[in-house]
């Protein structure tokens, strides 16, 4: 558990370092996640010590969004000015995203289904 948590922190650190050194406009933890994924693919399985803290964190992922979300209270004037633009943008783009993704994937539906059955 502790070793696994340390691994997560070290991959995050590696991600943050790479982002700073290369001057990439990408969040460090995302780079850390990609690095960890590549290591897991190379290794072929997830060590139990890593799986336990990872699943514990992800199980409560929603809680972790609350502190940043409360920061909305500092943006009331912005929300007041832009609420209509925001609402329309969210509805239109979310609808479009669903249509585009579903239309591209639908022709592969049968194959996906078979694959999932096999495993």
């Amino acid at each position: 558990m502790l070793v696994g948590f340390l691994m997560l922190l070290l991959f995050q650190l590696a991600g943050e370092l790479i982002v700073v050194v290369l001057g990439m406009p990408v969040p460090g933890p995302v780079v850390g996640m990609v690095l960890l994924l590549m290591c897991l693919i190379a290794k072929g399985d997830v060590p139990e010590s890593l799986r336990i803290p990872s699943e514990a964190l992800l199980k409560h992922l929603a809680l972790l969004f609350v502190p940043a979300g409360v920061g909305l209270m500092t943006h009331f004037s912005l929300l007041k000015a832009d609420w209509l633009a925001i609402l329309l943008a969210l509805i239109v783009s979310t609808g479009l995203t669903i249509v585009v993704t579903a239309l591209i994937l639908n022709p592969s539906a049968k194959k996906l289904h078979q694959l999932e059955r096999e495993s």
């Binding site: 948590f5 997560l8 922190l9 991959f11 995050q12 991600g15 969040p27 460090g28 933890p29 995302v30 850390g32 996640m33 990609v34 960890l36 994924l37 897991l40 693919i41 997830v46 890593l50 799986r51 803290p53 990872s54 699943e55 964190l57 992800l58 992922l61 809680l63 972790l64 969004f65 609350v66 502190p67 940043a68 592969s108 194959k111 996906l112 694959l115 999932e116 495993s119």
Partner: peptide
């Protein structure tokens, strides 16, 4: 609590790897 978002983001690699193994062909 906010700090844990970093390691939690890295941890997303674990379920991603689990799914990835299954759908490699697709």
């Amino acid at each position: 609590i906010h700090f844990l978002l970093g390691p939690a983001t890295v941890a997303l690699a674990v379920p991603l790897f689990d799914h990835f193994e299954r759908v490699k062909k697709m």
